[in-house]
Design a protein around this nucleic acid. Structure first.
Length: 292
DNA sequence: CGCCAGGCTTCTA
DNA sequence: TAGAAGCATGGC
């Protein structure tokens, strides 16, 4: 991987404001190992906005970025070297070789087919709190609406940053009441979000400690939160803590497993079941007829 | 309008 | 202890 700073001046228009973009980082990465649509719009994250030119804008750890594919290169606009190393490189899981991972998955014909269908999927390493909170909001909900909930949560309670709003901290949410969250329109999930915020803000649940825990202990701790069950905990651990062995079992994956993998996921996915899951989840949703 | 959504809690038998 | 009902909201 090459990460090289240059200074192409350009302007990027967003919501009527012209933001001066002074820096960009270019990384060489084959299209087959990162597709922006497949990765940023496959239900693992809810904050990225697709632009008309196919690039995406998003905010991670309070930093705004526009990501663009250009041939074999990925351009991170508005990013300096420090932020690239600190934020975007881990976020896009750039140090993992997805090519060899997919080669490994080819030991199973169905998994191979799913990976071939959307080879540009990667698992993002999101902020732990944001992932936890987002997937609490995701329950009994559809992806389109989840995005709306998260956007309103950020707009009302996040801090204004370049390009939009940061994701609100647990400390910001903890003192609120469910009525305070009314403008978010997240329904019965308001109480769940607040319980999570209070436990994290108070230190009763230490997300840094969770990150270092044995996986079953981590699952147990997260499920102490009201409104966090097996699925949400698994999503938080996979997408927020980089625990690739975690395999969220939503309705689609349950159908997929029962019809195609009655004996469980194949051995070649051992230890990275969560990544295999993302290919299978996407494949299942795009071929609903195969899964009744 | 009715059905359903990257589920979980609570109630019931 | 397993299974169903209830949950807010809105996209389709």
């Amino acid at each position: 991987m090459e990460g090289k700073g240059c200074y192409n001046r350009e302007n990027f228009r967003k919501e009527g404001v012209i933001l001066p973009i002074l820096e960009e980082i270019a990384v060489t990465l084959p299209r087959a190992d990162l597709d922006l649509d497949e990765t940023l719009d496959c239900g693992q994250c809810f904050r990225w906005e697709r632009q008309e030119d196919g690039s995406y804008t998003g905010i991670v750890r309070g930093r705004f970025c526009r990501v663009e594919r250009q041939g074999d290169r990925v351009l991170f606009h508005g990013v300096d070297e420090d932020d690239f190393q600190r934020v975007w490189r881990p976020y896009f899981d750039l140090d993992r070789d997805y090519g060899s991972l997919k080669a490994q998955f080819s030991c199973d014909p169905i998994l191979a087919e799913a990976a071939r269908f959307a080879p540009g999927i990667r698992i993002l390493r999101q902020e732990p709190w944001e992932a936890l909170c987002s997937f609490i909001l995701s329950q009994n909900n559809n992806i389109k609406r989840i995005k709306g909930l998260v956007a309103r949560l950020c707009a009302h309670f996040g801090d204004p940053v370049e390009g939009g709003f940061s994701f609100p901290t647990p400390e910001r949410l903890a003192p609120l009441s469910p009525e305070d969250l009314a403008p978010v329109r997240c329904g019965f999930r308001a109480g769940y979000v607040l319980d999570a915020a209070r436990r994290v803000a108070s230190g009763q649940i230490d997300l840094d400690a969770v990150a270092a825990m044995d996986i079953d202990d981590a699952r147990e701790v997260l499920q102490q939160i009201h409104g966090v069950g097996p699925k949400v905990a698994e999503c938080a651990l996979l997408y927020g803590f980089g625990r690739m062995e975690c395999c969220p079992m939503d309705v689609w994956m349950k159908k997929c497993i029962s019809t195609l993998f009655p004996c469980g996921l194949p051995p070649c996915s051992q230890g990275v079941e969560g990544i295999a899951q993302q290919y299978l989840f996407h494949y299942s949703r795009c071929h609903p007829v195969l899964f009744r």
